[in-house]
Design a protein around this nucleic acid. Structure first.
Lengths: 212, 212
DNA sequence: CCATTTTTGTTAATTAAATCACATTTATAG
DNA sequence: CTATAAATGTGATTTAATTAACAAAAATGG
């Protein structure tokens, strides 16, 4: 009955944002409770996987009843730290960076791009969505005066390692890169890659191969 | 020595685009051969994983020698169908859609957004990067006259299921969605989700949890 | 208050992926 | 041509994730 003390599997953690978002939607629509079977239908995850995932975070459900949505939101929200704004820096304000900045996680009140940087003097000084684009070397100081929890980079591959080295020197430990080439970082620094081209190629590939 | 006839693991297929891109880079820089250990260093994948992955596609290497880069490119390129242009349709030309269209996979000559659609009358008729934005109901006809291998959707969650139903009716079988809510589709249709918010949340989350 | 139904949480079983370990093959140097 | 070194390809093992199966717990309905 006590919460697990086993290591929480990576995949269970990866699913937390989906759970959280879906539960918030349900709450917004007036739902108060949910059972794993219903939730599974909605997000297309096996109920058993959901129950196991939830169990890592405590004894959250009641037999014959299900889960209290508000309670789950409370617990998962704490883990995701939705109550403190997570400041993000954007590096590279080209087309994609611009789109990200204009959008700025509007749907997610706790994620916010608080500063943006680019190498191109033409865009430095421009203000988008209340954020003024700066030269990258301002980041060091910025990261001391304001909390920057992570960096989103649209910097192209050839310049990325250099930028990352600088980020590491600034004390940044979380980086999301839209450039696919892997970079070398110390063990305490986490880089996540989001490779649009591979995603599309895999989409087409898996469709092709699926019929075999 | 004959190529495997076992089912190729999903993860091995997912890595093909990375292999392909990296090998092309190496070839561009004049390299002719590579061993799994070197390649592993570059893309940060265990050599053993690379060798096993490669083995699914034939007997591609030579003991004591390594792999012939041109040969690998040839084989993987065929699987990825890099020689035929893969036409894509973009649905939803907001900020993100616009960025994707402006970029249009310039680095990847075989991926190309060939048509774009939106519901907003203000953007219909506008031309970006030689693609004129149309009303979504034009897609049915377009998909008959030109090959559309897949769809990229930036349509928001609340409208997405409806759009997907229409796409399915048009015969589309591959969809990449930037909206996270899962939709229901027939088994032969593949939807891949790319959830930016979850990616960022997981980035921060995994950093937080890693120290434990 | 008891019997029945529902639904959880978890042990056990399964499936899938990654890695180890090494026999085999090929290249290379003498 | 032979011996040595290098590197592959793959059975065997390990690790991780998912799913099945079910006992225990709580709710519901008479």
């Amino acid at each position: 009955m006590t919460p697990h003390n086993k290591k929480i599997p990576r995949m269970s953690i990866e699913r937390l944002p989906i759970y959280y978002r879906t539960l918030c939607n349900l709450a917004d629509n007036g739902y108060l409770r949910i059972k794993s079977a219903q939730l599974g239908k909605i997000i297309q995850i096996e109920p058993t996987t959901i129950r196991r995932d939830f169990s890592y975070f405590g004894d959250l459900g009641k037999s014959g009843y299900g889960y209290d949505i508000a309670h789950l939101i409370q617990i998962f929200g704490e883990i995701l730290e939705v109550n403190e704004t997570q400041g993000l820096a954007l590096i590279g304000v080209g087309n994609l960076g611009r789109a990200l900045l204009i959008n700025n996680f509007r749907r997610n009140p706790n994620l916010e791009i608080v500063s943006a940087y680019d190498a191109d003097p033409h865009v430095i000084g421009e203000t988008i969505n209340e954020v003024t684009i700066q030269s990258l070397n301002e980041l060091k100081e910025d990261s001391q005066t304001q909390a920057i929890k992570g960096v989103i980079s649209t910097v192209p591959s050839h310049a990325f390692q250099e930028v990352v080295d600088y980020l590491v020197a600034c004390g940044i430990t979380s980086i999301l890169s839209f450039a696919p080439e892997p970079v070398h970082v110390p063990k305490n620094v986490h880089v996540r890659y989001l490779d649009l081209t591979s995603e599309v190629q895999n989409l087409l590939l898996l469709s092709d191969i699926a019929e075999v």
